[in-house]
Design a protein around this nucleic acid. Structure first.
Lengths: 152, 152
DNA sequence: TTAAAAAAAGATATTTGTGTCCTTTTTTGC
DNA sequence: GCAAAAAAGGACACAAATATCTTTTTTTAA
């Protein structure tokens, strides 16, 4: 479905949104450990995410690191995919036809269009913050980080 | 969503099912032209499809070529994906977590599981023959082959 | 039985994705 | 200003996916 790049991008962004803030920036070491991804490769992906769509923010030097602005937290998950150039999953024909549409459908078009619609909805209507909220309800995982329900 | 290999596998199989039969086998040249795919690469993929799951059948020599048996026409589309080792799309976690399940869900699990379920349904419940039938209703395309409604 | 046709098989090339490492730039605190 | 910390940037390495070409095997028909 998604490339490693996109998977790491999603995981890293969610992790940073979860555990980081402008006051408490996260280093690449912690992020890679937290989401169980290769450190240097993940660093490259974070560069994409800071440069495209400003999904994540970064500061260099001591006490530097990565965090998400409030603005970024409101972005749809799709913005992460766009930043790593993989948003086409939600538009592409399942058989890979260059032209495939209502007026020129492939044999699977009728069935697949509903799935595509829901994929689109999921990535467009869900904000990064919503995933954070969901996680914080408890019992969610993003590999080495477990969501723990806060005591009442 | 799917690799080129899987896309060509689907297109080629549908094409052969549409235009070929045991009496009228199709050559690799025609197939590649018909689905707009690289010839030699497609030939490799057809080898996979003849060897795994017996999705397509082949005969060498003059008047040889590819065709689908009646048995093969009844196979689910998933059998094509299995033959090219890409059936995992319908089970994998969208964030790429090795473990992701109801009891250990990723932050997108709740939303994505419904989509995954429908993907699974589509590939498991749809037979190759059903796609052929759909195509023959007319006005469907598989790149260079246009579905033409038969005159009444 | 031989030549031609066609897929199978093998070898190799190219491109893209994934991953690592080293150097540079920026920032901070002393 | 200087040393340390951290991300940014660049170069490279490796693997997988994609693609092409050549040779071999099988089959048919003349």
């Amino acid at each position: 479905m998604l490339s490693k790049t996109a998977e790491y991008a999603l995981r890293a962004t969610i992790y940073i949104a979860l555990k980081g803030s402008e006051e408490n920036k996260l280093g690449i070491e912690e992020i890679a450990l937290g989401i169980d991804s290769p450190k240097s490769f993940t660093a490259k992906i974070l560069q994409l995410l800071t440069q495209n769509n400003r999904v994540i923010s970064s500061v260099r030097g001591p006490n530097g690191g990565f965090y998400l602005t409030d603005r970024a937290r409101k972005l749809p998950v799709k913005a992460i995919l766009e930043a790593v150039e993989e948003a086409s999953v939600i538009t592409k024909c399942v058989l890979g036809l260059k032209e495939c549409s209502e007026t020129r459908p492939c044999p699977m078009h009728t069935q697949y269009k509903n799935i595509k619609k829901q994929l689109k909805q999921m990535f467009e209507k869900t904000s990064i913050q919503q995933l954070v909220d969901e996680f914080n309800k408890g019992n969610y995982f993003i590999d080495n980080l477990k969501g723990v329900r806060k005591p009442c």
